[in-house]
Design a protein around this nucleic acid. Sequence first.
RNA 1: ACUUCCGGGCGAC
Length: 244
Amino acid sequence: RFSYTALIKVVARSRRSGIIEAILEEMKGAKCHMDSVTFTVAMRAFAEAGEIKKAMKMLGEMKEQGCKPDQVTYTVLIKMFANAKLSKEVLELYEEMLQNQNPPDTMTYNTLIHAFTKLGQHDVALRFSKKMRESGRYPNAYTYGILILLHANMHRLDLCLHTYKEMKKSGFKASEVIITTLIRAIKEAGDLEAAHKLFNDIQQAGLGRNEFVYSILIEMWAKSGDAISAKNCFDQMVEKGIKA
RNA sequence: ACUUCCGGGCGAC
């Protein structure tokens, strides 16, 4: 069963749901018991192939066999509907989780917040963020990245920076993802002070494998007429071995 | 909840 599950996951990369179905048939033939992990991997495979119907059919089969979907299962399906921009069914799955005594965990909340961020339904995203806090789920590094993205999309650099501060206070280090998310908001707001702080953080954290971030910083300083900072940043970039 | 690991889920560009 473990090998079948692993196999499905590998095959899932090929986006050929026909193969997945064949494997599932074979498992059935071999009287191999399918557990929630097997079902979930299969659903994810269908989800990635854009086969929403098939994924939902699997959910049905799963329940029929008395196998209970768990948080991972729901998270996979929520992401699938979110990618298809089907916010109504996202919310339905969320409700179902609550009904089933399957309270969303950190990753489920991350997926929900991200889903509505991408859909441009910022108010809903914020509501889930609040619910997450209220439910006592701890944010992880992804959560902070998603929240910063949400605030950036809301054109609220102040909230981005606030979340960033909170993240560091909670013991998370700045990452490449966080930096590239933040830099967009900083650029948009033209906040030179924030740019300087971020540049410091990049150096302190030993980050900066990303030419995109440098180009924005240099451009900001160049535009503001701060040739010294622009040059300094450029030199740092070259020192890191990044091509100009 | 036999929550160490051994098969599954989340973020920017």
